[in-house]
């Protein structure tokens, strides 16, 4: 039996995984996603990857994430690709920054917005003057 801490969400359920005759038996999960996590973790572990990339002409970085979890074994290769990226503004939240990151089949997407020239100030600056 293997004990795992589910990392799908901050609740962190303690899972017990047993190899039974009819496949894996998983207990301790608070939701269905725990089952999928335990299965993946026992066979092909995956992780979300978040990082920042450079923005041309800006002193601020753009936050990015893999759209879904990528194989754990590809994390460092993915970081090498991410470090080589420089994006040009404007970039909108959700925009794909790079397809097929580290040949994972998963795209890298922006999690923030960089709004063209003078992009030190975020879009929201224009909000709410009286």
């Amino acid at each position: 039996m293997t004990e795992l801490t589910c990392i799908v969400c901050p609740v962190g359920c303690r899972l017990k995984v047993e190899q039974g005759k009819e496949g894996l038996k998983i207990i301790g999960n608070g939701c269905r996603r725990g089952v999928a996590y335990a299965r993946d973790e026992m066979t092909a572990p995956k992780r979300m990857l978040t990082a920042v990339v450079q923005v041309a002409g800006s002193e601020r970085m753009l936050p990015v994430k893999t759209e879904t979890a990528i194989p754990k074994a590809k994390i460092y290769a993915a970081m090498e690709e991410i470090k080589a990226i420089t994006v040009s503004p404007p970039v909108m939240i959700g925009q794909v920054i790079k397809e097929n990151l580290a040949e994972s089949g998963v795209p890298l997407v922006a999690t923030g917005t960089i709004a063209g020239e003078g992009c030190f100030k975020p879009l929201e600056k224009s909000l709410g003057s009286e």
């Binding site: 979300m48 978040t50 936050p63 999690t111 917005t113």
Partner: peptide, 25 residues
């Protein structure tokens, strides 16, 4: 939130997993 670029935000409130900047957005 803008500097918390990691994910794990929003599961209780939005029922989906977001990064800090996305949650603030």
């Amino acid at each position: 939130l803008p500097q918390c670029i990691h994910n794990g935000f929003g599961l209780r409130y939005f029922k989906e997993e977001l990064t800090g900047p996305e949650y603030a957005h």
